[in-house]
């Protein structure tokens, strides 16, 4: 009873926050509602006993991804009216993605597994240990491939943004650290009335 009640509570919150993500006029508010949506999905994962997946979702998406979103969105100067006007253009694409995700959910829940099978799978052992058991053995190739995909994305982003400009002055940390007082300061004895001879 408690489980079902909290499921509907968090699910309702999740859907509400998702709606606010789309319809908030201020993009910063959108990102903050997105954070709430991630938090609610974390709670949902914990409710079904998948505490490891839930907390990893919180660490990765709330603790890193959404902060970077917020970081970028805060610095943008977005005209709110144009943003609202353009939203209609993206509706067909959004419907397409929604259809794909819905089809995946239906495939996974209806055809792939039966329900009590999943339940015993979850309850039989510590959630974290179970993931650890299969991640590097059964799903080794998939895991490494997804890592390589992420690496490629990162390198691509760096290549796109990191343009070498010869006019920019850069610091050479090693040479800065290896300088001593003798390189920078020289003690001279100056006779009165002669000044410094530049040599």
């Amino acid at each position: 009873m408690f489980l079902v009640g909290s499921f509907f509570l968090f699910a309702a919150f999740l859907i509400t926050t998702c709606i606010f993500v789309i319809f908030s006029k201020n993009p910063v508010n959108s990102v903050l509602f997105l954070v709430l949506a991630f938090l609610n999905s974390t709670f949902l994962f914990i409710l079904i006993g998948a505490e490891f997946v839930g907390i990893i979702l919180a660490i990765v998406y709330i603790g890193a991804v959404a902060i970077l979103f917020l970081f970028v969105v805060m610095m943008l100067d977005i005209q709110i009216t144009t943003l609202m006007f353009n939203i209609k253009r993206y509706i067909p694409l959004a419907l397409l993605f929604a259809g794909i995700i819905l089809a995946e959910i239906v495939y996974l829940t209806v055809f792939k597994t039966s329900k009590d099978n999943l339940d015993t799978f979850i309850r039989s052992k510590n959630n974290t240990e179970q993931i650890g058991d299969v991640l590097y053995t059964e799903y080794f190739i998939d895991f490494q491939l997804s890592g390589i995909v992420l690496l490629l994305a990162m390198i691509g982003a760096i290549v796109l943004t990191h343009v070498y400009r010869p006019t920019i002055k850069r610091q050479n940390i090693e040479s800065q650290n290896s300088t001593t007082a003798e390189d920078r300061v020289k003690l001279l004895k100056i006779k009165s009335g002669e000044g410094i001879k530049d040599d």
């Binding site: 907390i55 660490i59 709330i62 603790g63 974290t128």
Partner: peptide
């Protein structure tokens, strides 16, 4: 006393 205490703290 939860199983994933350290991850909770990190989060």
């Amino acid at each position: 006393n939860i199983n994933i205490g350290i991850l909770y703290l990190f989060a």
